[in-house]
Design a protein around this nucleic acid. Structure first.
Lengths: 236, 236
DNA sequence: TTGGATACCAATTATGATTTGGTTTATATT
DNA sequence: AATATAAACCAAATCATAATTGGTATCCAA
């Protein structure tokens, strides 16, 4: 059997050339390779031929391309694992509660270290407003804002994002409980003093105390949640 | 008792005037009200006075403001950005490291309570494989799997989801690292013994010890990260 | 028929000007 | 002296526009 002439598989040689280039060139962190137009010039081939070679490498799964973005080595990044709906479907109220107990005390601890006076003022505002709430709906609004203000006080956008994700799942999870509680929070509502303790600790830069107070609060919420007598799905 | 003159409490009258305007004007769907500069002209007051009135309404929780966005009626919507890419764009390596220090020790603590023998076996496997790694890429693979196995061991799908989100952001964030480290992890690599300590504590159901060991490990990784001599951004 | 250059398209990114809430400063005004 | 006003400035966010980039179609030449 005769060997084919050297240029019988021109695309093959270009693929080889391209592989050599990609192995030699040090790519940026995201694995992006030069745009097709530039790369064609650099390799001394037409864009059409280069694209054929890129097609081969893409079919091999060695790179991925997207209009407007560019061409990248490696495998295409999986899109948004943080699908709230999917998470909520797999999860349940007990898990949410346990996750809160894992995450939020540590967020409170971090907040005690980084909280600004302005953030603490906002926390105080939330405390006052939640006490004045005329309906559970209003109360829950100020309660949610308090907890988020604490997360913001960490000054860490990633922690805040994780907190928001946790919160979104919490809202999405079906609690299967009815809102049969009294029409408005009573002054004796356990959360009031517990919230106060959390903010006090943060204000005094007491990291351990803040974490402990938050844990106590969430445990209290958890108890109410599991208590069949008080079927209200309290949000803490 | 005499009535005070009409302008004795100018801020009060402006608040009233503002309330009337907001009640009368039909606001757009998002509840946005005109910019302060325009509204001041429309109401015939100075911007300073208008802002005082807006402060009152804001403290009442009837509106919220944000620089660059505008002023809106109602309560501030909590922007849940579960989008990995968006999170990564706003974050940075330091934030990621701090977030890991907040989250992962508590995950290790929870895992010490819930881990099954099978999960612990898998952790041991990861330890062994990571020691046998011939390249940093291989090592990182087993390292990542170890940390995820610990998160799985909590048997909490929500915690696992949050861990995955954190991990995705970590990978997406630009580290700007230099791969100047040796071609493969040395036997003396600090992570080996630290990983061992974590798994040992989990196996002995030592919750406090697991959290402490994880914290020690991540602090060590953090140190390496900030060390200019060893610019390799170790992944733990 | 094949390959190459060109132009065009839609998705994306980059850029610069503009808007907006927040703050400071100088100047009247009382 | 105290207060209000106007103006300027700042940083965050938005908007509008241009420039990139992978994908596709067209025309021309070999």
């Amino acid at each position: 059997m005769l060997m084919p002439p050297a240029d019988a598989y021109p695309e093959k040689s270009i693929v080889t050339q391209l592989r050599a280039y990609l192995a030699q060139a040090d790519l940026p962190q995201d694995g992006r390779i030069p745009p097709e137009r530039d790369l064609a010039v650099a390799l001394g081939v037409s864009r059409t031929e280069l694209r054929k070679a890129l097609d081969v490498l893409e079919s091999e799964g060695q790179l991925w391309r997207h209009v407007g973005k560019g061409t990248f080595m490696g495998s295409r990044p999986l899109d948004t694992f943080a699908d709230i709906a999917a998470l909520a479907r797999r999860s349940n109220p007990a898990e949410v509660m346990r996750a809160r107990l894992v995450i939020e005390p540590e967020i409170a601890r971090a907040a005690a270290f980084t909280a600004t006076p302005a953030a603490i003022s906002e926390m105080r505002l939330c405390l006052a407003r939640s006490r004045q709430a005329e309906t559970w709906r209003q109360y829950e609004g100020w309660d949610a804002r308090l907890h988020r203000t604490i997360a913001e006080a960490t000054q860490n956008s990633l922690l805040l994002g994780l907190f928001d994700t946790l919160n979104a799942v919490r809202r999405a999870v079906t609690w299967g409980r009815l809102r049969t509680a009294p029409v408005k929070p009573l002054p004796s509502h356990h959360s009031f003093t517990e919230h106060d303790a959390i903010v006090d600790a943060i204000e005094h830069r007491d990291m351990t105390g803040a974490a402990a107070a938050m844990r106590t609060h969430l445990r209290s919420v958890e108890r109410k949640l599991l208590d069949k007598q008080d079927a209200r799905a309290d949000e803490g």
